[in-house]
Design a protein around this nucleic acid. Sequence first.
DNA 1: GAAATAATTGAGACTGAATCTCAATTATTC
DNA 2: GAATAATTGAGATTCAGTCTCAATTATTTC
Lengths: 145, 145
Amino acid sequence: MYQSPEYRQLTDYLHVQGLNVTPERMEVLSLVLKQKGHFRIEDLIRNSARRKKSISRATIYRSLKTIEQAGLIKSIRSINDEKIYEIVKGHHDHMICEQCGAIIEFHNSELESLQDRICNSRNFTASRHVMKIFGICSACQKKQE
Amino acid sequence: MYQSPEYRQLTDYLHVQGLNVTPERMEVLSLVLKQKGHFRIEDLIRNSARRKKSISRATIYRSLKTIEQAGLIKSIRSINDEKIYEIVKGHHDHMICEQCGAIIEFHNSELESLQDRICNSRNFTASRHVMKIFGICSACQKKQE
DNA sequence: GAAATAATTGAGACTGAATCTCAATTATTC
DNA sequence: GAATAATTGAGATTCAGTCTCAATTATTTC
């Protein structure tokens, strides 16, 4: 149980921070890893409620924050301002369809190096960035024809 | 009164949309234009409350949304997830200091054309983008030395 | 410009996400 | 295994943002 590298990463983080390794924290991570693609906190809460031993709303919020700080997940805001989480794989950015709300991931290395250049020229030490492009996805464009 | 181009832009938008031109909407725009740089809705509400004829919270929220749709202002989320508004001048992006919360504007034309290329290659029709770079600003770096 | 019509406003109730409180429970340390 | 400190759960609380609906106001028409 709890073999995959994600659990290691979390326990390592907890140890470094002097935090306790609790079943609740591990269970929240396990709920997260069961999600496919993007998810909302309410999804986790509902999924947890379905189990024998459910985890309280407060603990799910608290653990998610810890898991985010451990670098395992990150959050973005969708069109309707909803907070959406996703598992951190490689870094990527997002295109968001203003019509259907679809969130499309992309990665572009030019963009990454451009960020560095922009920051260097202004003495800003960047730790990360968020790029969101809003518009109409190809599927919605076809529908309109 | 209400001579500057911003008021024109708003009344034009209201006419096109078949919405009424009300003193409240104009007054909210005037509150907005008094702000320097970035501001929060609560700032406007507080400023409005100070006046002879104050405008209700609900109307300020409603009018701000209209003013945003008219293209006069836009919003971003700061580090602590606070919703921050700013007057739309030319398009620009943001660097956000994770230490002091400072929001620094920048514009880079390479970034703009790069966006187009990325979208073209994926059949995504972009209408706008948001780029936020998080890190430590030069002032905070000096403080730490 | 007065009447008719439709949109807007204000006050406060309401909603829902997120946080807080604190006693009871549990992980960690020695 | 006892002592200590961290964590949890349940529900209260907070706060931004939205909704309701009667009263008001802008707009249109003649």
